[in-house]
Computed example of a mutant assay.
Amino acid sequence: MKRLFDLVLALCAAVILLLPLMVVALAVRLTSPGPVLYWSDRVGKGNRIFKMPKFRSMRMGTPAVATHLLEDPKAYLTPIGSFLRKSSLDELPQLWSIIRGDMSFVGPRPALFNQHDLIALRTQYGVDKLLPGLTGWAQVNGRDELPVFQKVQLDTEYVRRQSLFFDMKIIGLTFYRVIRRDSITH
C-alpha cells in the first residue's frame, strides 16, 4: 500500500512540478559551472548504497561530507545554493528516487555513505530495514539541528508508529516547516 501511495504521489508531483523543475534546472545551469544535478551516494534500505539526485547547490569540488562538517559551508554554496536549500527546492529531483523505489516519501532521511555513526546506530535499532524518505519524523522535529542519537531515537519512534495516517501527518508538517523555513541551515 505504501509503495502504491509513493508511486502515485511521486508521478502526480512530477507532472505538477515539471515547470518549476525545469526553471530550477535552468537557474542552476546559468549560475554556476557544472552539472545541474548532484548524485550523492546514500545509504538505503538494508544499508545498500544508492545514488540520490539533488539540484546542485554547492560548487564543484566540495567535499562529500555532511554540510555541518564543512569548516565554512557558505563558502561552497553556488550563487543560488542558499535559496535552493532554504526553500528545499534542491530536494525535488528525489522524486526520481521515489519512482525508482530507492526512497519513499516518508522514512528516515538517507544517510551519506560516510556517516558511519548514524548508519551504525540505525542498524542497531532496526531503522535500516526501512526505505529512506524524502522527509521523516526527525526532519519535522529538528532536521539539521539534531544530534545523531536524537535523530535515531526519532527514526526508531517512526518505525513503531508508521502508518498511512502518520505519514500524512509528517507530510503536512513538512510543508509547514518548509514554508516557515524551520531548522534549515545554509
Rank of each mutant, 00 (worst) to 15 (best):
L164R: 08
L70S: 05
R161M: 11
G101V: 07
L134S: 09
V15W: 05
R181Y: 03
R160W: 02
V127S: 12
N114W: 03
Q139H: 12
K129P: 08
R109E: 05
T67P: 01
L70H: 03
T174E: 01
H68E: 07
G46C: 06
L11Y: 08
G133K: 01
E71R: 13
P53S: 02
I16H: 01
Q94R: 03
K151L: 07
R29I: 11
Q153I: 13
V36R: 04
A10E: 03
D117L: 08
I170E: 08
D6T: 11
P33D: 15
P110T: 04
R180Y: 08
R48H: 12
L70A: 05
L37D: 03
T78S: 14
G44D: 02
L21N: 15
G126I: 01
I16R: 08
T123C: 12
L4G: 09
K45T: 12
L146N: 10
L118A: 09
F175S: 11
R109Q: 03
F105Q: 06
Q115R: 06
V152Y: 09
S87N: 07
R109D: 01
I171K: 09
V148N: 10
G101D: 09
R122Y: 05
W39D: 00
L131V: 09
Q153D: 10
T123P: 10
Q153S: 12
L37M: 07
E145A: 14
S97R: 00
D144Y: 05
K74Q: 13
L37Q: 12
L7F: 05
L4P: 00
P53W: 10
I171T: 09
P73T: 06
S32A: 12
H116R: 15
L26S: 13
L164M: 14
L77P: 05
S57W: 00
Q139M: 11
K45D: 10
W137S: 01
T185E: 14
L77A: 01
E157R: 10
